[in-house]
Design a protein around this nucleic acid. Sequence first.
DNA 1: TTCTCTACTGTGAACGCTCACAGATGCATG
DNA 2: CATGCATCTGTGAGCGTTCACAGTAGAGAA
Lengths: 341, 341
Amino acid sequence: MSTAAARRRPATIHDVAREAGVSRGTVSRVLNGGHYVSPSAKAAVDAAIRRTGYVVNRHARSLITGKSDSVAFLLTEPQERFFEDPNFNVLLRACTQALAAQDIPLLLMIAGTEDERRRNLRYIEAGHVDGVLLVSSHSGDPVVARLHEAGVPVVACGKPLGQTAKIGYVAADDRDGARDMVRHLHASGRRRIATVTGPLDTPGGVERLAGYRETLAEVGLPVDETLIAGGDYSRASGEDAARALLERAPDIDAVFVASDLMAQGVLDTLARAGRRVPEDIAVGGFDDSPAALSSRPSLTTIRQPWDRISTEMVRTLLARIAGEEPAAVILPTELVRRESA
Amino acid sequence: MSTAAARRRPATIHDVAREAGVSRGTVSRVLNGGHYVSPSAKAAVDAAIRRTGYVVNRHARSLITGKSDSVAFLLTEPQERFFEDPNFNVLLRACTQALAAQDIPLLLMIAGTEDERRRNLRYIEAGHVDGVLLVSSHSGDPVVARLHEAGVPVVACGKPLGQTAKIGYVAADDRDGARDMVRHLHASGRRRIATVTGPLDTPGGVERLAGYRETLAEVGLPVDETLIAGGDYSRASGEDAARALLERAPDIDAVFVASDLMAQGVLDTLARAGRRVPEDIAVGGFDDSPAALSSRPSLTTIRQPWDRISTEMVRTLLARIAGEEPAAVILPTELVRRESA
DNA sequence: TTCTCTACTGTGAACGCTCACAGATGCATG
DNA sequence: CATGCATCTGTGAGCGTTCACAGTAGAGAA
C-alpha cells in the first residue's frame, strides 16, 4: 500500500448497530427487507449505514446462508466460435447487465480444454455459484449432465441436444425463422432454393434445416438433397459450401444460409464465380450480426432477439434458483430485409 | 430440488480431518502449501480429500483472510465499442484463462451508465475483489482515480490518459507500430502518405498519430496537416475520413488508418471513388482483427499481441496484489503484410 | 383484570475456515 | 544432562453475517 491510500478496515454490521443505537439483529433485518422493524429504528439504521459507508460482507453472508449470490456464465464452446461469433458479445453483455440490475455478479468461465472443464465443474459443484447460464451447443455435452446431476440450477442458451435430463433453456425460434426466410425467398419468385446448414449437432443447425425442409414442402417445391450443403458456421465453410452448390446445381437462384458469417463466405464465392446478388442468386442469412450490414450487398437476414434471450435466461435462472421447475422459452425471430434478397 | 438430485451437504475441513485422523490445522496447512507437515500426514490428508471430494469453501476462507481470490474485469467503455471491437473478445478470453490457471475467478463488470458505474465501484470498494483489470480508454476517467484512491490494485489496458495517479498498465507499442507501418508505406515508394487517426482522447489515437508524425520527419517527408483526418475507430468514421482526405488531397498515394475497422470504411470509400488498392492508393490498418483478413483486398496491418497483453495484465495485477509497485509494460507489435499495401 | 396476539428487539450460536499460540518430539550442541 | 532449535501437531479464538429463539411492550378481547 505504498503508492495508494491504505485500505481502511471497512465498517461492519456491528459498527452500524452501535452508530444507530440498535442491535445487530435489527440492522440485519433492515438489510433484508425491513420487516418487523419500527420506522424509527429503520431510519436510524439507514442513517448509520450512510454515515459509516457500510457495505455487507458477502462472504460472511454466504457462509451462513449457503448461497453465493453470484452466477456463472459458462462457455463450453471450442474457442474459435467465441471469437468469430458476434452474438456471444451481445449475449454476455446483456446477461451481465440483467444480473447487475439485481446486484448479482457474473463469473465468466471458459471451458475449452478438458482441464478447464474439470476445474470449472469443480468450482461450480462446490456450490460457489448459485446457478449457471450455459452456452454449449454440441450434442451430448457431458457438462450438462454433470451440472444437472449435481443439482445446480442451469439455464441453457438454445435447446440442449442429446440430453435425457430436463434442462431449462431459452432459444430463438430457429425453425420459424428459417421458415420466414425461405417463404420470403419463394415469395420473391425463387424456385431453386438451396441451403447451407449449420453444424448438425447444434440445435440451430438442426432446426433451421428443418424449417427449410418444411417450407419447401409447404409451398410445393421438391426437397432436392443436392441443394443442401453442410457448414460449421464459419466463413470459410460458407465459401466451400457455395462452391459445392454451384458445382452440383449451377441453376440455383437462391441460398438460405444458416448464419451471416457463412453467408459472407457464400457472397465471396458467388462474386468470384461471377454471379450477381441478388439479380442472379438471392442470399438470405441468419443472425443479423454486424457483418450483415457491412457486407456487400448487405444481407437480408433473420434477427435473433439476443437482448430478450439474455434477459429471459437471467429471469428463468433466478426463478429456477428460487425453486421453480425448469422451463423452455422460445422467442420469435424477425426477418430483416436488405439488399441480398 | 424436485427434478434434480438434491445437493448433498458438502464435506468440510472437519470431515477431512476426521477421515485422515489429523486435526483441522494440519489439513489447513496441507491446503496452503504443505509446510510443516510430515509426509505421512500429508499423504493421509490428500487421500481423505480425494475420498470425501472436499473443496475449500472460499467464503469461509475469504471471511478470515480478507481476500476474495477473485478479480474484476471492468469495462467502462461506451457500449458500442464492446460490440464492434473484436479485440475485446480476445482480451477477455485470454484474461479469463490466465486467471483460471491460478484458480482465480473473473467477475465481468460493465459500467456503461452512471448507475452501473456506481454499483460496480461500490462492489469493488467494499473489497469484494482483490484487484481490477481495467479497460477504459477515455481520458480522465473518474473510475481510475476512484479505484486508486480506494487502494484497490488496478492494471489498465493501455496507458490511462489524464491521470495524475500512478496506475500500472499494459499496452502494445502503438507508436512503434505506427512507425513500422509508415516506414513500410514509405519503403514501397509512397510519398503522399495520409493518416486517419483514432479518437485523440485515447492512448492508441494519440500514440499512433505521434508515430506517424515521427516517421515522416525521420524519412524527410513534410508533415502536411491536410493529410491528417480524425476518426473514432468506427467503420463509418473511416468512410467519412477517406472522403474528406480525397477532397482535400486528391493526390494521396497511401493512407495509414489507425484501426482495421476504419480501414474497412476507407476501402469502401476508395472503391466507390474508383481508386484501386493498392495500385493507386496503399492502405495500412491497425489491430489485425478478423476484419483485416476478410476485407477485399485483405489488409496489411499491425498486429497487437493481445494474448500477451492479457497474460501480462494478469501477471502484473497479481504482482500488484502481492504488494509490488505499479509497472508499465509495453509490448512489441508486428507488421502483417497482406494485399492492401 | 388477565389473556392473547402482533409488532418489535436483542442475544447466542452457528457457518467453515485461518491464524496465533502452545505443546510435543527428535536431534544436535553446550 | 540440560539447552536450544527445527519440525510437526492440535486447540481456541475470531472473521461478519444470519437465524432461531427468547423476551418486551402495547392493544384489544374475554
